[in-house]
Computed example of a mutant assay.
Amino acid sequence: MDTSRTTTADETSGFAAALKETAHALLPGLGAGGLSLDAVAAAGGLTVAEVETVFPHRDDLLTALLIDAYNESGAAMEQADRAAADSGAPAGTRLLAAARALRQWSVADPAAFALVYGSPVPGYHAPQDTVPPASRTPAVLAGILRSALESGELVPPRRPLPGPPLIRPEAAALFGSLPPEPFTDVIERGIVLWSSLIGLLAFEVFSRTHDSVQDQSAFFDFAIAVTAENAGIEIPLN
Rank of each mutant, 00 (worst) to 15 (best):
A23H: 01
L46I: 07
L27W: 04
A18W: 08
N71G: 06
V48S: 06
A76D: 06
T12V: 15
P56R: 11
L30F: 00
H57C: 11
N71E: 15
V48M: 12
A18C: 10
G31K: 06
E78N: 06
T53S: 13
A18H: 11
A25M: 10
E50V: 11
A43T: 07
A39Q: 07
V54F: 09
A25L: 08
A17F: 02
E52R: 13
E52K: 13
A64Y: 05
E52M: 09
N71I: 09
F55G: 08
T22G: 11
L65H: 03
M77C: 07
E21Q: 13
L27E: 05
T47E: 15
G34M: 00
K20V: 09
V51I: 10
A69G: 12
H24N: 13
E52Q: 15
M77F: 01
D68K: 02
H57I: 13
E11H: 11
T22V: 15
T53W: 01
T12H: 07
V54L: 12
D68I: 10
G74I: 02
G74R: 00
G34Q: 08
L35D: 00
A18R: 11
A23N: 00
A32C: 10
I67K: 04
D68Q: 13
V40W: 03
V51H: 09
D59Y: 07
A25D: 14
L62E: 01
K20P: 02
V48A: 11
P28D: 02
V54W: 07
R58F: 08
H57M: 13
L46V: 08
D60L: 08
D10A: 15
A32H: 03
L61E: 01
L26I: 08
T22M: 14
L19F: 07
S73L: 12
A69P: 05
L35S: 05
L27K: 00
T53E: 14
H57N: 11
L30P: 01
P56C: 06
F55S: 06
E72K: 11
E78Y: 03
L61D: 00
Q79V: 13
D59G: 04
G29R: 01
L65G: 08
G44T: 09
I67E: 03
